[in-house]
């Protein structure tokens, strides 16, 4: 602690120096992930001649699309200082499996019901966490267990197929085609991801809600004292997150052609990774959606690059973990040097 005070003191002494380096640090803290991205891309060019091609980048951005859609929502939770939504995997599975079992009503009603089911999870999370201040990680973890048990019980541990459930009608095929629809050779999931991230960026930086969320994320008690309706804002954040998770779940389910309780497994930690790499701090109130996009792309490029080098699956895990910590360190270190964060 003494060290910290010292550091801050020496920083304020060298104001002239601070101004210059401050700007760089500011950019590093906001968009540092893009620096890493450029380094990775340059490395890639040297490693394989096929790496630097439009096709390859298309693959990377496509592979990250589902994750990006999920992150666009979950980032609101991280931004509001509530870490992560551990019930995201089951929200994804739920919306997918409900959509498929309602597919005989037609594609649009089925999608609405499916997304509604997912949002319901978010509403429950939002009320319990927003109003009663339950611990966000543990509560969403418990929700994950409970909903998972319900899905398994209702569908008796089986998986269901869109073409069977729709009785061979066009709706089933339309459902599996959701993730197979292309616009100018690029799947629509990519456009939706970018659209959601841009809207998210707009909401966070330009609207009243975004600013209130920032205050909640920085200090929830202060936010209460300033008269912000904290519990309603947190509820909205969870609804946004569950909507995005439901949407991602529909894409994953449509891509896998099967509705099952295991769809979306592992997406919780992957989403946190992408969001945090992208410069959002877990303590809340900091970061932006452009950074989150960078986080999603970095994960994609990293795995792409390692396949090109020919690194085995196990070594890939080690490298991924190390680079993850490194990037977060760069982000938080520059924030700290700016005196903006004490965590």
């Amino acid at each position: 602690m003494n060290k910290k005070i010292e550091k801050q003191g020496s920083v304020s002494q060298n104001i002239a120096h601070e101004k210059q380096s401050g700007k760089i640090l500011d950019i590093t803290s906001r968009f540092g992930v893009y620096g890493i991205l450029i380094v990775l891309i340059i490395a890639g060019i040297f490693i394989n001649s096929n790496f630097f091609s439009l096709n390859n980048f298309k693959n990377v951005i496509q592979a990250g699309a589902f994750l990006g859609i999920l992150c666009a929502g979950m980032a609101f939770i991280t931004y509001s200082g509530h870490f992560a939504d551990m019930s995201a995997p089951i929200t994804m599975a739920l919306s997918g499996i409900v959509t498929i079992s309602c597919i005989s009503f037609g594609i649009v009603p089925a999608l609405l019901i499916g997304i509604g089911a997912g949002v319901l999870v978010g509403v429950i999370n939002g009320i319990v966490i927003g109003k009663f201040k339950a611990n966000p990680i543990i509560w969403t973890l418990a929700m994950n267990f409970v909903v998972s048990g319900i899905i398994r019980w209702v569908y008796s541990n089986k998986q269901i197929y869109p073409d069977v459930e729709s009785g061979g009608s066009i709706a089933g095929e339309m459902f599996t085609n959701i993730s197979r629809t292309y616009l100018w050779g690029i799947p629509i999931s990519v456009f939706i991801m970018i659209g959601l991230l841009l809207i998210g960026q707009f909401v966070l930086s330009k609207t009243r809600y975004g600013k209130q969320l920032k205050i909640i994320g920085s200090n929830i008690d202060t936010a209460k004292l300033t008269g912000i309706n904290v519990s309603r804002n947190i509820l909205i954040a969870y609804i946004i997150a569950s909507f995005a998770a439901a949407l991602a779940g529909i894409f994953v389910t449509s891509f896998g052609k099967v509705g099952a309780y295991y769809n979306g497994e592992g997406y919780d930690f992957r989403a946190v990774t992408a969001i945090v790499i992208g410069g959002m701090t877990l303590s809340g109130g900091r970061g932006n959606m452009i950074g989150v996009l960078g986080g999603v792309l970095t994960i994609g490029i990293l795995s792409n690059l390692m396949t090109f080098i020919g690194i085995g699956t196990f070594e890939q895990q080690i490298v991924t973990g190390a680079i993850f910590i490194l990037i977060v360190w760069i982000n938080s270190n520059s924030l700290r040097k700016l005196g903006r964060d004490d965590a």
Partner: peptide, 25 residues
């Protein structure tokens, strides 16, 4: 050419195979 264990996820496998197609042609 290569062997990898991407787990049982369609999108992860897709990225892996896309990478292979680019890499090995």
């Amino acid at each position: 050419l290569d062997k990898q264990a991407p787990g049982f996820e369609a999108d992860k496998t897709k990225q892996l195979v896309s990478d292979w197609i680019t890499k090995f042609g």
